[in-house]
Amino acid sequence: MSRKQKPAAAASQATSPLAILDTPVTLTGLEKCLLNEYQRGFPLCASPFARIAEQQGVTEDEVIGTLESLQQRGLISRVGPVFAPQRAGASTLAALAVPAEDLTQVAEYISNFEAVNHNYEREHHYNLWFVVTAPDQAQVQRVLGRIEAETGLQVLDLPLERSFYIDLGFPLWC
């Protein structure tokens, strides 16, 4: 992953619009910088915002205020540690090819399982994709079995075999 350390973007407070589908979001240079440069390496020290302020040539209050504003607007979900998914348990990615007229009902049925933590509709013959997570493999299979029995559809069971996932966040403006 090529993540170059860019010089402080904070100096230029010019605003620039982001191409958004419905609601245009306008971000300042400092906002962009905080969004882009701290997807990892957020300082781990007693006064992290002061450290960022130092790195970006702004004040600690500006850093805190900007992050508060980003959080209030829903542009950052949180500031803090990102935990690795734990492997103490079992999970699988599963897919169903649901007839269009049944999709809403089946999707709701799937989402209601506590063991399902992601459920996406995708544009494909296999149009419903969800992740089943449980303390062990037998329980994952039981959930899939119930789903097959209830929907009459065959589940495509795609457990993870190997991860090539390098989680460093990803650049937002490049």
Binding site: L34, L35, F42, I76, P81, G169
Partner: peptide, 26 residues
Amino acid sequence: LQRVAAMQARGIIRRIAAVPNHYALG
């Protein structure tokens, strides 16, 4: 601080971040 650093070293914490909401950002 020490425990957070240790959990990061052990891979329990992957990174420490201002976590963007990609969807809200477009």
